[in-house]
């Protein structure tokens, strides 16, 4: 069955992978709410047409996140798909990571997912099941120096997804994570140079980096009815850079 007409939330959708994914889901006829702290999310959602709607929310703020998530789900009259995509990246040597920077990374990259799952799962349980897809990263499995807090947060996403798959399985809600390889979005743009980009490209036997659409296609697949027997899985979209 097609995804048309069903409701989706995509977080971190003002730009990058999230925006590409939201566009793809709208193309499939889904009703999509784009959440982001960046006010540009409103205009970006408008540019996707009448099936899309943007809402500004700082996912670090617990009360605000809960309120916006609940209002969104009520407004959409239930939810088929939750994509926890919002995330931040920072590069800092382990010895210099400030505890507050660590906490902040965990708040957005992990805790926000917990809040949204807590808001979304009850309506999926009340409905006919659903799909939760969490954006992890190849960093959860490989990772590079300077990424301790980022890699730990993404490994937490993989583990969180697995336990959520356990708890919601009987309700036919699948929960999976996606582990993208390198995508040249604005994320981390200030921390990379051409030499690094060449090195990253060489980690993939396919000899190229990932595109936002490669990642969006994986999420669309996991969101489909036909992927209903895949749960607790972390799907690498890494061009062969990571094979486990």
């Amino acid at each position: 069955m097609s995804l048309a007409g069903r409701a989706a939330i995509v977080t971190g959708a003002a730009r990058g992978i999230g925006l590409t994914l939201a566009r793809r889901l709208v193309d499939r006829g889904m009703r999509v709410t784009l959440l982001d702290r960046d006010p540009a999310v409103q205009a970006r959602a408008e540019s996707l047409g009448s099936l899309a709607r943007g809402r500004v929310v700082d996912l670090r703020d617990i009360d605000e996140t809960r309120a916006v998530a609940e209002a969104t789900i009520e407004e959409m009259d239930g939810l088929w798909l939750l994509v926890n995509n919002a995330g931040v990246f920072e590069k800092t040597p382990l010895l210099e990571i400030d505890p507050s920077a660590w906490d902040s990374m965990m708040e957005i990259n992990v805790r926000s997912m917990v809040l949204l799952i807590q808001a979304a799962a009850p309506s999926m349980i009340a409905g006919d099941g659903g799909r939760i897809v969490n954006q992890a990263s190849m960093a959860a499995k490989l990772g590079t120096p300077g990424e301790a807090h980022y890699a730990a947060s993404k490994a937490a996403v993989v583990a969180l997804s697995r336990i959520a798959a356990h708890e919601f399985g009987p309700h036919q809600i699948t929960v999976n994570s996606v582990c993208p390889g390198y995508v040249l979005t604005e994320m981390g743009a200030d921390t990379r140079d051409p030499r690094q980009i060449a090195e990253w490209t060489a980690t993939s036997p396919l000899g190229r980096l990932a595109t936002p659409d490669d990642i969006a296609a994986a999420v669309e697949f996991l969101a489909s009815d036909e992927a209903g027997y895949i749960t607790g899985e972390s799907l690498n979209v890494s061009g062969g850079a990571c094979t486990w």
């Binding site: 697995r162 798959a165 356990h166 399985g169 390889g181 993939s204 036997p205 396919l206 190229r208 990932a210 595109t211 490669d214 296609a217 994986a218 697949f221 027997y229 895949i230 749960t231 607790g232 899985e233 799907l235 690498n236 979209v237 890494s238 061009g239 062969g240 094979t243």
Partner: peptide, 18 residues
């Protein structure tokens, strides 16, 4: 169809291994 997925294994087991 997944043009950037290679060397990967995808488990379709209803989460049985967990």
């Amino acid at each position: 169809e997944a043009d950037y997925v290679t060397g990967e294994y995808l488990v379709i087991d209803g989460g049985q291994r967990f």
